Simulated scan of single mutants.
Amino acid sequence: MPTNANGPRLRIKLRLEYDSPLILGPGKAELLSRIDRLGSISAAAREMGMSYKRAWTLVEEMNVAFAQPVIDRARGGAGGGGATVTPTGKDVLTHYRALETLLREAGADHLQALNALLHPEPEG
């Protein structure tokens, strides 16, 4: 991807809009990825700087939209709670990341051309 001294000027962000109210974009993909790594919706939300309520709402949107849940959640208690990305959730994330890579690689020349058409970056 073309860069200048400050990094890329234009980037592609994949946003998939479905007939249901689901929109799958970089934020939900990142939330899934962090829940997978951390095993916790609240820990993933904290890392992303969002409220637990917002993260849970996003998880619920995805769980309702897909035929199978993307996250399994265990309630807190003596042993603590937790969250697991399901096989469906892992598939969603894998396909989403593959589409991002495809767009980034196939679109590199177009991004470079669009960057060339932008006003020059101010110096300073």
Results as ranks from 00 to 15, higher is better:
S33T: 05
L58V: 07
V59F: 03
P87F: 02
Q68A: 12
D91I: 06
D109Q: 14
N63A: 14
W56C: 00
S51N: 04
S51Q: 04
E61A: 09
A108M: 05
R54H: 15
N6W: 10
L99D: 00
S20Y: 01
I41F: 04
V59M: 06
K53L: 07
A65M: 07
R54E: 08
S51D: 05
G82A: 03
P21M: 08
L24W: 05
E100M: 01
G7H: 15
G79Y: 12
M50I: 13
T57Q: 15
A74G: 14
E30P: 03
S33E: 11
Y18W: 07
F66Y: 12
R34A: 00
E61I: 06
K13Y: 12
T84F: 02
G80K: 13
K13L: 13
G39W: 01
N6A: 08
G79V: 09
E47Q: 14
L58D: 03
R15L: 08
Y96P: 12
M50D: 14
M62H: 05
T84I: 07
S40W: 00
D109I: 09
L99Y: 00
S40L: 02
E47R: 10
Y18N: 02
T57E: 13
A67N: 12
A55R: 03
G76N: 09
S20Q: 08
L14A: 12
I41C: 08
I12G: 11
T86G: 03
L58F: 02
T94K: 08
E17A: 09
V92G: 04
R46P: 03
V85N: 13
G7Q: 06
G77S: 06
L10I: 09
A43Q: 15
T84K: 08
D36M: 07
R46T: 15
A55G: 13
G27M: 07
L32C: 05
R97D: 12
E105I: 01
R15V: 15
Y18R: 02
T101E: 00
A44S: 14
S51K: 05
A106L: 04
A45L: 10
K13W: 09
E17W: 04
P87K: 05
R73I: 13
P8R: 07
A55S: 10
G89I: 01
G80V: 15
L103K: 00
G80T: 10
L58W: 02
R34H: 01
R34I: 00
A43Y: 03
V70G: 13
I12H: 14
E105F: 01
R37A: 15
S20K: 04
A5L: 15
P21E: 11
A106I: 01
G49S: 11
K28A: 06
R9M: 15
G7C: 14
A45M: 12
G27E: 09
L14S: 14
N6M: 06
G89Y: 00
R37W: 02
G80W: 04
Y18C: 04
E100L: 00
E105D: 12
